[in-house]
């Protein structure tokens, strides 16, 4: 919900900056919006050298996502317990030994706090 709102705001700002270039200069003087944990998690998830989730998962606003893993939608319905989602990202093999999902926590691909941020983001989808 939050993300939708911030998206609308960003789009509005983009459209406004195209229509009214002067207002962009004004906007630049305003203090920067502090990124939420969801924003931070999103950028880790989208980063090819970090989470790189889109290599395998469909995400609603992703360009050319892969399809090796299930689409990341309705995550709260699929994971009523947030800790189960976190465990899945930490080491998916603990639930399914045949999974090809990289063990992001177990293999230190992401740090503990990065995993938490990614969980925040994925849980918002």
């Amino acid at each position: 919900m939050n993300r939708n709102l911030s998206m609308i705001l960003r789009l509005t700002a983009l459209v406004a900056s195209i229509l009214f270039p002067v207002s962009l200069a004004l906007a630049e003087e305003l203090p920067e919006v502090i990124p939420t944990s969801i924003d931070k998690g999103r950028s880790i998830a989208f980063n090819r050298n970090a989470g790189n989730c889109l290599s395998c998962h469909f995400v609603v606003d992703a360009e050319l996502p892969g399809n090796l893993g299930p689409p990341l939608i309705q995550m709260q319905a699929r994971f009523p317990d947030r800790a189960v989602l976190r465990a899945q990202i930490w080491n998916a093999a603990s639930q399914n030994p045949d999974t090809i999902m990289p063990p992001y926590g177990k293999h230190n691909i992401l740090t503990e706090s990065e995993v938490d941020l990614v969980v925040d983001y994925i849980y918002s989808l």
Partner: peptide, 17 residues
């Protein structure tokens, strides 16, 4: 030890901390 803990929901594997 790492393997033994891997089934817990809150993971207990080695972390930097």
């Amino acid at each position: 030890f790492g393997c033994g803990e891997s089934n817990s929901v809150k993971p207990g594997e080695a972390t930097l901390a």
